[in-house]
């Protein structure tokens, strides 16, 4: 029973974090119908940024997430301006492959500069602290990351549904030309959406540095999971992404514990295939 609660809580925490990582991707996909293949590498860049801020300035990830979020906002918006925008509409999958090129570049740039070694930020304020919840042992840095991910997702959802700029984003997603006729500067919206997508992953990466080691390949798995979460949740839907992410997190941790650790991602991807074959547009898509 203890194990069950432990596995359940682990799954939910992972799920919430996947939710924030995937939210940015989902937004970009929903509004522009572009898959940002460099999403996982943005996460890696965010983690390195946070790591170096921690090492050089001594700022705790609990605070430096603001900086990584801002940095990734500009990195992501810039990569839209200079790369994605120029490849949209030219050929099928051109933006996807262009961002794949960016991901290779970023990964190997970090490999070249920072070596392939695993780096774990030590001396953070929550390091090694645990909380007991119903007999389960929960690491505090991870718990804080998960809770903050949920908060961020709520903020993002509120922003898209209620604010003026959020409505402009929705309008652009529904019908670009009609939105332009209504006076929405869709080019700016696209840049903004890319920036927000990068910011989400930047914030997630900033927090994750407090419990996860950084290395150049760290983003690869997260980006695959994020793709699956987005496709499962239906594009552009933040609540859909969160539900799908929680489901993926639970399947991952239960399959990892009750079947075999190596089977956890097999189970995740098999679940995705099974769902998408019955509902080709995902669980919450239309």
């Amino acid at each position: 029973m203890d194990f069950f609660v432990q596995v359940l809580i682990d799954g939910l925490m992972n799920g919430a974090i996947y939710g924030l990582v995937a939210a940015g991707l989902s937004l970009i996909w929903g509004v522009m119908d572009v898959i940002n293949f460099a999403h996982g590498e943005f996460l890696m860049v965010a983690m390195y940024t946070c790591y170096w801020i921690g090492m050089l300035v001594g700022l705790d990830p609990l605070f430096s997430w603001v900086l990584t979020g801002a940095f990734l906002f500009f990195l992501s918006a810039g990569s839209y301006k200079f790369i994605v925008r120029r490849s949209i509409g030219k050929a099928a999958m051109a933006p996807l492959l262009a961002t794949f090129g960016l991901s290779i570049f970023l990964k190997n740039f970090c490999l070249n500069r920072f070596t392939p070694n695993f780096r774990l930020l030590s001396g953070t304020s929550l390091e090694g602290k645990v909380t007991h919840i119903f007999g389960a042992i929960v690491s505090q840095p991870k718990l804080v990351t998960a809770i903050f991910s949920l908060v961020m997702l709520c903020v993002l959802h509120y922003m898209i549904k209620k604010t003026r700029i959020g409505r402009a984003i929705q309008a652009t997603a529904m019908d670009r030309e009609a939105a332009e006729l209504m006076g929405v500067d869709t080019e700016r919206i696209f840049t903004l959406v890319f920036g927000i997508g990068g910011m989400c992953v930047g914030i997630a990466g900033g927090f994750m540095t407090s419990y996860l080691a950084v290395f150049p390949e760290v983003g690869a798995l997260f980006s695959l999971i994020a793709f699956v979460v987005v496709a499962l949740g239906g594009f552009g839907s933040i609540p859909g992404a969160l539900c799908a992410a929680l489901l993926i997190g639970l399947v991952e941790s239960f399959a990892g514990f009750y079947i075999a650790p190596v089977m956890k991602y097999v189970a995740v991807f098999a679940l995705y295939l099974a769902v998408v074959l019955v509902r080709p547009k995902g669980l919450f898509g239309w």
């Binding site: 933006p95 492959l97 262009a98 090129g101 960016l102 190997n108």
Partner: peptide
């Protein structure tokens, strides 16, 4: 001599250049 991964960086830049300039 520039260290590991430089050839892959060139590869990545080439892909970006190709997709931006001439996806065909």
């Amino acid at each position: 001599f520039l260290g590991p991964g430089v050839d892959q960086m060139v590869y990545g830049l080439l892909i970006i250049f190709m997709m931006v300039r001439q996806p065909k």
